[in-house]
Design a protein around this nucleic acid. Sequence first.
DNA 1: CGACTTTGACCTGCGC
DNA 2: GCGCAGGTCAAAGTCG
Length: 176
Amino acid sequence: MDNYPTFFSCSSSTPPTSSLSLNMADSHAYNGFQGGKANGFLGLVSQMDVPVSGRNVPESGSFVESETDVKPGKKKGEKKIRKPRYAFQTRSQVDILDDGYRWRKYGQKAVKNNKFPRSYYRCTHQGCNVKKQVQRLTKDEGIVVTTYEGMHSHPIEKSTDNFEHILSQMQIYTSY
DNA sequence: CGACTTTGACCTGCGC
DNA sequence: GCGCAGGTCAAAGTCG
């Protein structure tokens, strides 16, 4: 289901912010994530409050907050913990967006209605349970959708120069 | 040799 | 209940 209830709050015609100061590398940036109260973060919206009737084709816009079920059922009787999930699109030639953290790939799946496989990564930092999915759009193979799940519980591991470059690309894309 | 990727199998949820 | 699709596991392979 590539149409998990995402909706893109920022349309291409209305760039949400002119000065995108997204800094996932810093721990205080988590607050913006966790609270979901966008602090100028690309019109971050909470998915749960929105009735999803019908599908929203991700044509434009770039950021989404949604929730996901974690724990497929490895441990029975365990409560389902829902972790917030944050997806954004970037225009990039490469799938691997180096955001400064170290990721280990743990799976890859072909998804329906998409000729590109989706890759699953997990943060390798001990005790850090953050996951991300990387997927390219069939519709526009220049766009990579990265979905983050969970919060990093540790500082970034290397320079974010590269990530800032990515961010600048996001900016370019969202302002189109 | 350790860290990481690859890849098929397995599990679970969901729609019919 | 069945089948499909998404998500995860884990063994084997690869690389520095």
